[in-house]
């Protein structure tokens, strides 16, 4: 309905209105800040922002989706990231050793993608298992105070996964030097490694596929219907359990994929998921709880904020500055920069 209303008005009017909304101003401001910083410090700022931003977007998207559809504030989201990077490590590392013995250009080009896609499926599988094993029983028992209870459940899950990983594989770092062992490209005078470029392209492709799935397919529409009104969705014959499992699988899969694609920057170790987790939460609170499309933009905004903080203020301050930004945010616009699609931000 919203889309139809937009179509009726001439594009410049819509565009001007959007540019003067909080969201439009933020995006404009972000781009301006990015350009100023790039002129001041060098174009690597933009490169770094865009590469990590794409992956933060995938992560926040999943977090936002699960909150919007299932009403679960997922604290174990970072653990999907961890599982993804572990899967990629254990797939890619043997392959890499094998390739050292018998070089094959085709296989070495395809091996990283193998690891990344496998990570997606392992993550999705974990998501389904968690939904069937944990959230579904809780949903059957009681829906009282669901948000808080499911939040605490995910806390428990996160603790169990982190420490099981530590028990099984120890606390050492499991990383790889790079996915594609080729010379870095020269881009705007910055050395851009192929891994980073691939991570960004992968994020873009995934986002497009995801957008297509949500907007243009029957199943995607069903997911959005459940997000809007669960009872209504049940009434028109949507298989609720299937949609809930699918949502969890998608969210977990995207997070795992992000973890796998960034393995060359973030090695896998038990608490590797913590940082991505709170980045995803920063993004989601910043743009508005449950607002899926805004989460994508938010991913890039937060990535810029982090890059700027670590360059101008120093590493180690990346947690302090975004928290300050969020505090300001909550004072003036608690529903988030782009507004929240979840009903009842204010406690009624």
């Amino acid at each position: 309905m919203k889309d139809e209303a937009l179509l009726k008005e001439p594009f410049p009017v819509v565009f001007r209105r959007w540019m003067t909304s909080a969201g439009g101003i933020t995006i404009l401001l972000t781009i301006v800040v990015a350009i100023i910083a790039a002129i001041d410090a060098g174009p690597f700022i933009i490169v770094n922002t865009v590469v990590t931003g794409g992956m933060w977007a995938l992560l926040s998207l999943g977090l936002s989706l699960v909150f919007g559809v299932m009403n679960i504030p997922n604290f174990a989201h970072g653990e999907f990231f961890l599982i993804g990077s572990l899967t990629a490590y254990f797939t890619f590392n043997p392959l890499r050793l094998y390739l050292k013995e018998n070089p094959s250009p085709f296989l070495s080009a395809i091996a990283p993608l193998l690891g990344i896609f496998l990570a997606f499926f392992v993550g999705a599988l974990l998501g389904v298992i968690l939904e069937k094993l944990i959230f579904s029983p809780l949903r059957k028992r009681s829906r009282d105070q669901w948000v808080m209870n499911s939040f605490l459940l995910t806390v428990g899950i996160s603790v169990v996964i982190i420490n099981s990983v530590q028990l099984t594989w120890g606390a050492n770092f499991k990383g790889i030097p790079n996915y594609w062992n080729v010379d870095p490209l020269d881009f705007l005078g910055v050395n851009l490694s192929v891994d980073r470029l691939a991570a960004f392209l992968l994020a873009v492709v995934t986002l497009i596929v995801f957008w297509y799935f949500m907007r243009r397919t029957q199943t995607g529409r069903a997911v959005r219907a459940v997000a809007q009104d669960e009872t209504g969705a049940l009434m028109v014959g949507i298989n609720l359990n299937y949609i809930l499992s699918l949502t969890m699988a998608l969210s977990a899969g995207l997070a795992a994929m992000a973890g796998a694609s960034l393995l060359f920057i973030f090695p896998a170790y038990p608490t590797a998921g913590l940082k991505p987790l709170y980045v995803a939460w920063y993004v989601v609170i910043l743009v508005g709880l449950g607002n899926v499309s805004a989460a994508v933009v938010g991913g890039f905004i937060v990535a810029l904020l982090q890059t700027l903080t670590s360059f101008y203020v120093g590493t180690g301050w990346e947690d302090v500055i975004p928290t300050a930004v969020i505090i300001i945010m909550l004072i003036f616009k608690p529903s988030g920069l782009f507004g929240s699609e979840v009903k009842g931000i204010q406690e009624r």
Binding site: P73, V147, M148, F151, Y278, W281, Y282, I285, L289, G314, G316, W317, E318, D319, V320, T323, A324, I326, I327, L330, P334, G344, I345, Q346, E347
Partner: peptide, 26 residues
């Protein structure tokens, strides 16, 4: 945060905690 839904208080208290941790570290 407490004028908002409970989850905001939980997440915000967590952020404040992380910021305090970062401050003591730095």
């Amino acid at each position: 945060t407490l004028r908002l839904r409970g989850i905001f208080a939980a997440v915000m208290a967590w952020f404040v905690g992380l910021a305090l941790l970062g401050l003591t570290r730095n």
